[in-house]
């Protein structure tokens, strides 16, 4: 009985992750978007995030996987179906949006649950910036994500940052949907 239950949870979790991964490959559908962050200072000082506004979709918090799911997976498998979601950025910006803050809160919860976990946050950019400047911008994106995580109580020495600029796009396309996918702070688990 208990076994089937955890299996169901696992399947739901997988579905959520796969849905999140596939989102960017489809043309954008009209749906209400949360407004961008209005308080960039809040992101850098790391104060508590504003409460979710009523118009927003409910926050999807990945259910805590059963202990053995993470424990038994290899790092590669873990990164392939990562419990840590990426957060996305506006063009030319390294401000963490309200949506991004929710993602980071969920990621922080995972990191707190697994104290041994160490991550590298990769900063990525879309092709509409130059290769050179994007390296600095990606660095700022990764750093913004890290700063916010630290403000949520995650130890700074568990989180490394690296920028890849526009060198490794997630979506090789050349349209808005691809660019949105490529402007991100991406989490890679390096130890568990």
């Amino acid at each position: 009985m208990k076994k089937t239950q955890s299996l169901v949870i696992l399947i739901v979790l997988l579905a959520v992750v796969i849905a999140a991964c596939n989102k960017g490959n489809k043309p954008p559908v009209a749906r209400p978007m949360p407004p961008p962050a209005v308080d960039p200072a809040g992101t850098s000082t790391g104060g508590p995030p504003p409460p979710p506004k009523p118009v927003m979709e409910p926050v999807i918090v990945p259910p805590m996987p059963a202990e053995d799911t993470i424990g038994s997976k290899t790092l590669d498998d873990l990164n392939r179906d990562s419990p840590l979601r990426p957060l996305y950025f506006e063009l030319d910006s390294s401000d963490v949006s309200a949506e991004g803050q929710q993602v980071l809160q969920a990621n922080a919860a995972v990191l707190k649950k697994y104290p041994g976990m160490q991550v590298t946050i990769e900063g990525h950019c879309d092709e509409r910036g130059t290769a050179e400047y994007n390296l600095a911008l990606g660095e700022r994106r990764a750093l913004a994500a890290k700063t916010y995580l630290v403000s949520l109580g995650i130890s700074a020495d568990k989180v490394k940052t690296v920028s890849y600029g526009k060198e490794f796009p997630f979506d090789a396309g050349h349209d808005d949907a691809a660019w949105k996918q490529n402007r991100r702070a991406h989490f890679v688990i390096t130890a568990k």
Binding site: E127, P169, G173, H174, D175, A178
Partner: peptide
């Protein structure tokens, strides 16, 4: 990985160059 910025073109959607 061509880095061509596509024109904002609703009809053709994704296009190179």
């Amino acid at each position: 990985m061509p880095k061509v910025a596509a024109q904002a073109d609703a009809i053709t959607g994704r296009r190179r160059g």
